[in-house]
Amino acid sequence: MATSSRAVVEEVLRAGRELDIEAFVDSMAPDGYIEWPFRPAGVPGRLQGRAEIRDHLARTAGSLVTFDEYRDVVIHETVDPEVVIVEYEAHGTVVATGAPFVQTVIAVFRVQDGQIVSYRDYLNPLPLAEALAGATAVP
């Protein structure tokens, strides 16, 4: 039985929140990509392919912020069965300072054959930029 696009997206969201890098990467198609159209300096605009995504996550996951929960999650299944749009607030902690962190996200996924071929993450860049600035500020 084929896995629904919604179920694939729900799994990648869980894996991202829990820092389960292997499950996250396994949800991606071999040549799938992640894009961040709006991002602060230092955050890549695009990662393509499982190896590049795995390498980036292994180096960065949990190093700047950690996420405890996603709140107000709304999953929109579209008329195109491959496309799923998700809105949510990511609540967590800035690792360097222990300060609370809230990130508003809208993400657009395209799923083919049970794997994500594209993941466009339209996050609000301001909280991340503030966390980056706070983490590098000299007391």
Rank of each mutant, 00 (worst) to 15 (best):
A135P: 04
L64D: 00
V9P: 03
S118P: 12
I53K: 06
Y33T: 00
V138P: 11
L123Y: 10
V83R: 10
E87F: 02
E22I: 01
Q48V: 09
Y119A: 01
V65H: 01
V74P: 05
L64F: 00
R120L: 06
R120K: 11
R14G: 01
G114P: 06
H91G: 01
F24E: 00
T93Y: 10
Y33E: 14
A107D: 13
A131N: 04
A90N: 05
L126C: 04
E35A: 12
R54I: 04
V117I: 14
D26N: 13
R71K: 11
T66H: 09
S118G: 12
T97H: 11
E89Y: 15
A51M: 09
E87V: 01
T78D: 04
R59P: 05
V73D: 00
E130P: 05
E10Y: 09
I85G: 03
V25Q: 02
G62A: 06
T60Q: 08
A131P: 06
V102E: 10
D26T: 03
L132M: 14
T60S: 09
S27T: 08
P125T: 03
F101V: 00
G98D: 08
G42F: 13
A99V: 02
E130A: 15
V9M: 02
G114T: 06
A131W: 07
A131T: 05
P40M: 07
G114W: 12
L13H: 08
G45N: 02
